[in-house]
């Protein structure tokens, strides 16, 4: 479904900096993949390329066989609002809008009918347990609620690909578990391909597969078996093998 082919990213500047080199990655339809790596390893850069926020220097990204980076500006906008959902670490909700309005924004931009938007908002809010805060403004709700609202916004248009950048980075462990559980459920129930970038081994253990990258290069990957607990342990093991300091992967980012 998603193919990342031989992608490299070089940041030009006084000293050119190679953030990613020759990354290959493929996601099946409905797969849930987590990308892990130490700070500065290039995982967010990789996600931004897939999200069409940033462009690769060489190589290409194919989503369902076509490369979104070659689309015209207008087609790209349509592609984003129909095919992609994005969850950020800082929630990035528009604070001028209510929770409900934030959720329906991608549909609004697409010019959908109000009735349809209301129905969809209601359905997804129930799934995520945020029906009670639909009328509230962003500054009135907690971090966990904000992230759930952001997930609702990312999922409301039933995207083919859901991208999450450190979605638990600003949350406590209880809220993290809730949010990750929801992402897992949505992934299974809606069959939405999901790509997650995280520092947090706990969060990564909800995925089907974890891909490790280091210094912009592919390091290794592990698949989840039956038990999430064993998967969590093997993630920790791999991280220590990578030579990184354990503290790099604490669930609260410094």
């Amino acid at each position: 479904m998603l193919q990342v082919k031989n992608v490299s990213k070089v940041y030009e500047g006084k000293i050119a900096y190679r953030a990613l080199s020759n990354i290959d990655l493929a996601l099946e339809k409905g797969e849930f993949v987590a990308i892990m790596g130490p700070s500065g390893s290039g995982k967010t850069t990789l996600l931004n390329m897939v999200a069409t926020i940033d462009t690769p220097t060489t190589g290409e990204v194919l989503i369902e066989g076509s490369n979104p980076h070659v689309l015209s500006r207008n087609d790209l906008a349509k592609f984003r609002r129909r095919e992609l959902g994005f969850v950020f670490q800082e929630f990035n909700l528009l604070y001028t809008l209510t929770v409900e309005e934030n959720m329906v924004l991608p549909l609004t931009l697409d010019g959908k009918r109000v009735k349809e938007m209301n129905e969809k908002a209601k359905t997804i809010a129930e799934k995520l347990g945020i029906s009670g805060i639909m009328g509230k403004r962003v500054h009135e709700i907690s971090g966990g609620q904000a992230q759930r609202a952001a997930i609702a916004r990312a999922m409301i248009h039933q995207p083919k690909l859901l991208l999450a950048d450190e979605p638990t980075g600003n949350l406590d462990s209880k809220a993290s578990k809730d949010v990750m559980g929801m992402l897992e459920t949505l992934n299974k129930n809606e069959n939405t391909t999901t790509m997650l970038v995280t520092h947090d081994p706990q969060a990564a253990s909800y995925a089907d597969r974890v891909v490790f990258i280091q210094d912009g290069k592919f390091y290794s990957e592990i698949h989840r078996g039956k038990s999430r607990q064993t998967f969590f342990q093997s993630i920790i093991d791999t991280l220590s093998l990578m030579g990184g300091d354990d503290r790099d992967f604490s669930s609260v980012r410094g």
């Binding site: 207008n74 906008a77 349509k78 592609f79 984003r80 609002r81 129909r82 991608p106």
Partner: peptide, 14 residues
Amino acid sequence: EFGLLMMQGMSTRQ
């Protein structure tokens, strides 16, 4: 703000 809106799929025209 514009960046976020574009992320949600707002076109330049919009």
